[in-house]
């Protein structure tokens, strides 16, 4: 019995069902404000019938912070396959996706990421990506069901020394599905190469 709506600053006072859970990080206020102000349409909550927050997503739209090495950017161009595989074209990124423990397995994560993908398509992004701990097999499986695949493994990404998988899902613009690849689990990169 849930509904997706934009997330607002006042929601930070209602997100305990998600953020008291040990798997969800509570960031400092500046982090959330940055997202609300820069990417308001990519911050969404899913709320229950009585307004309780059952999950939320924070996302952004961006590309690598330096000009594309080969213009116009086309992920199917050979240069991006071999020379610049870590350059990120215009894409949507899921920074945070969380569902409260009591509302899991109801399709909320899919509903929220679908909403983000719709905006990614509207903004002509090439793909959506996200980072996930390699040990979080439940989340990885869920993302795979949602159409994501592993693009690369970022070694030593988290503070505690864990690796992350960078997972991607191509959007409509990527007709040739050139932003994804097979066997990404085996392609290891250093955190310094990742934006």
């Amino acid at each position: 019995m849930s509904s997706v709506r934009p997330m607002t600053p006042a929601d930070l006072l209602k997100f305990n069902p998600c953020n008291l859970d040990h798997l969800t990080e509570t960031y400092n206020i500046g982090f959330y404000l940055d997202y609300f102000s820069k990417w308001p349409e990519l911050c969404m909550v899913i709320e229950g019938r009585h307004g309780e927050i059952e999950g939320y997503i924070l996302g952004k739209l961006e590309s690598s912070p330096y000009p594309a090495p080969h213009v116009p950017y086309d992920p199917s161009h050979a240069a991006y396959k071999t020379q610049y595989p870590n350059y990120l074209g215009w894409h949507a990124h899921i920074t945070c996706l969380t569902v409260s423990p009591s509302s899991r397995r109801l399709g909320h994560a899919t509903a929220l990421s679908n909403s983000l993908e719709v905006i990614g398509d509207r903004e002509n992004a090439w793909f959506v990506d996200l980072f996930v701990r390699v040990e979080n097999t439940a989340a990885i499986e869920l993302y795979k069901k949602m159409g994501y695949s592993v693009y690369r493994r970022i070694v030593d990404y988290y503070n505690d020394g864990s690796d992350a998988f960078d997972m991607r899902k191509p959007l409509n613009r990527d007709v040739k599905r050139a932003t994804v690849r097979e066997g990404g689990e085996e392609i290891r990169v250093d955190p310094g190469e990742v934006w």
Partner: peptide, 12 residues
């Protein structure tokens, strides 16, 4: 163990 942080102080 609940790791109440930042804005959660207001509510928890």
């Amino acid at each position: 163990s609940l790791r109440v942080r930042e804005i959660q102080q207001e509510t928890m």
